[in-house]
Amino acid sequence: MAVIFLIAAVDSGFQGAIMAPTEILARQHFKRISGWLSALGVPVHLLTGSLPDPQREGILANIASGEPCIVVGTHALIQKTVRFGGLAAVVVDEQHRFGVLQRGALTAKGSHPHVLVMTATPIPRTLTLSVYGDLAFSVIDELPPGRTPTETRYLRDPDDPRLARFIANETAQGRRVYWVCPVIEESDKLPLMPVIRRHETLSKRFPGEKVGILHGQLPPEERQSTMERFVSGELSILVSTTVVEVGVDVRDATVMVIEDAHRFGLSQLHQLRGRVGRGEVGGFCFLVGKPGTEDGRARIEAMRTSSDGFEIAERDLALRGPGEICGVRQHGITDFKVADLVKDRDLLEEAREDAFTLVGSDPVLSGYPDLRREVFRKLGTKLKLAGTA
């Protein structure tokens, strides 16, 4: 759907842009989109922070000229040096990974472009805008044909021999395993297993397998090379941070181990679980850890008992709060004084419809001076953020 949306802009003589949160995902999108559209002669450019300057300058010139094209990129798309000559369609992939100001910065590079935001897991802000703002949404609430839900299990001990045997059995059949840790290096403040040490222990535990490591501090070229080796099967186990959380598509990956799982948010856990079971063989997700808080135990239980992203989002909403409606916070204590977005959804939906009707008939609230004054008193300059998807 996103590619059709972008093609429509190019077919009308304009430009389209898709922004992804990581270079790995941006490169994956670029490879697929350029492959699909090469026969149609649609120019597709990749813009990331690691591009060599000469190549980058050439792409920037093409974009600024207004050439009808599709630009795939990371946060590099919103840098000041990037000027679009005719941006009419904006796609933000994995929108929960971007702040509202970042999404607004890309939209501002066009003259009121059409905007499509996508995420596999609705998060509190998405739910809030769906109820309270002008974000229209479509729901894909079923798995692709042939896919089966990933089975989720909970273990307290990452060194549980049952887990080691399970991984050995999967890799023996040519399947791939993700092992995700919350931090890169050891810290005196947080007693968490770091990626670097877990890579060492797994390399010793599975001496017959090639174990790779992936995290954000590695050079972009090394990250890309490691991911390609994992996709090809040269690496059978990949120890990583949440850099693999979004969009990475490895059809032979069947096992996701998330260490210290209670330290992750529900949307992160759901996204990570979605990295496995993407082929013909079902996936398995192991949540490992010893949660010491009620919230931590609630997140583990939510993941263990549900694979429905919208149900998980509702639980996340109850745990984290919807975020300031027109502000830059994505989650936290709501600025509603009375309303509860979980319990009062029907009432809020009715209020939303009334607000649309009122603004439709009197956009500047000239007939309601007291209401207008109160809106500006409470929201002020934040009003311009209210419509940012």
Rank of each mutant, 00 (worst) to 15 (best):
H199R: 05
G274H: 04
Q28P: 02
L287K: 05
I300C: 07
R315Y: 09
R156V: 07
F14K: 11
Q173Y: 05
H75S: 13
D141Y: 06
S236R: 06
H199Q: 08
R297Q: 12
E353T: 10
R56I: 03
V375D: 12
H45I: 00
G367M: 06
E349F: 07
P21C: 12
Y178D: 01
R299I: 07
R320H: 09
V246Q: 04
G66N: 06
K204V: 08
I4Q: 12
S306Q: 08
I4T: 09
R251T: 10
S50G: 08
G13T: 11
D93S: 11
E245D: 13
L202F: 09
T150Y: 04
G174W: 04
G85Q: 06
D11G: 00
I7M: 14
I24F: 01
L269I: 03
P21A: 11
K189L: 13
I167A: 14
P363F: 01
Q95R: 05
L365V: 10
C285V: 12
R27W: 08
D188V: 04
R175W: 02
G104D: 06
K210P: 01
H270K: 09
D362R: 11
S65L: 08
V359Y: 07
E259K: 01
T334M: 02
E350Q: 12
T388C: 10
V328T: 15
H114I: 06
